[in-house]
Design a protein around this nucleic acid. Structure first.
Lengths: 109, 109
DNA sequence: CGCTTACATAGCTCACCGGCTATATATAAA
DNA sequence: TTTATATATAGCCGGTGAGCTATGTAAGCG
C-alpha cells in the first residue's frame, strides 16, 4: 500500500555526499574494488566499506568476491523509485493544471 | 564548475520523511497554509515552520503572505537537478554499454 | 607455517538535526 | 486597546550517523 519505503531508503542513502560520490564513481567508471574506491574517496577504508554496505542494503550496488578482493558495481534499476517519485510529483502538478483548464473552460461556457 | 551543490541540497532536504511529506502534500493538493499543513503533519507547528523554511532555502517551495497566514506552494522546477542527476547516472551506463558494443564489434572484425 | 594484503567489523567520539516547549511578532477581532 | 489567532524564532535535548583507530577474517605468498 505504501510506496514511500523504497523512496525513503533511497533518499536517505543518497543524501550523504561521500556515499553518493561512491555510487557516482561506480556509475561512471563501472566495477571497482574497495581499494580502488578508497584511493580517491577522501576517507578511510573502513568508512568506504561501511558506505558500500549501506549502498548494498539500499539495492544500489552489487558485490562480487574474487579472491581477497570485493568488486562493487552500480545497480541502476534501484533508481526507479526515485524516477517514479519525481514523475509522480510533476504529474500531480499536471493534473491540477488540467483541472484548472477544465475549470476555466466550464467558467467560459 | 561543480554541479553537485544543487544536488546535495536537494537530496539532503528531501531525505527527511516529514519534510518530504510536506512537499508531497503541496504537490498533490496545491497551495496550503501552515495551519492546514500542521493539521495532518503529525508534528507541532514550529516543526512544520522549520521544515518549510528549509524547503524554501532549497528552492522547493514559495511562500505568500496574506494577513496573518502564510501560504506555501511547491516549486517543481527545483526538482530538475534531481532529474538531471538520475539521467546522468543512467547515461553513464548507456555510454559504457555503447563502449562495450564498440569493443565487441572491433573484436569481431 | 608465518607474513602480507584486502576487506569487514567493532567500538568510540563528536557534530548535526529533528523533535519539543516557550516565547516573540504581527494581524485580525472585539 | 485589549484579546485572540497565525506563524516564526529561540533554546533545549536525545538519537542518529559519519568519521576515526584498532582488530578480526580470509586469501595469496615466501
Amino acid at each position: 500500500m505504501d510506496m514511500s519505503d523504497g523512496q525513503d531508503v533511497l533518499f536517505r542513502t543518497l543524501a550523504d555526499p561521500t556515499r553518493r560520490a561512491l555510487f557516482e564513481r561506480l556509475c561512471r567508471e563501472g566495477e571497482k574494488t574497495v581499494g580502488a574506491l578508497t584511493a580517491r574517496a577522501g576517507v578511510s577504508q573502513p568508512v568506504v566499506s561501511k558506505h558500500l554496505k549501506l549502498l548494498k542494503q539500499a539495492g544500489l550496488v552489487n558485490d562480487r568476491h574474487e579472491g581477497r578482493q570485493t568488486h562493487y558495481s552500480a545497480r541502476l534499476a534501484a533508481l526507479s523509485p526515485l524516477v517514479d517519485w519525481t514523475s509522480e510529483m510533476t504529474g500531480f502538478w499536471q493534473n491540477r493544471f488540467d483541472d484548472l483548464e477544465d475549470l476555466l473552460k466550464r467558467m467560459d461556457q
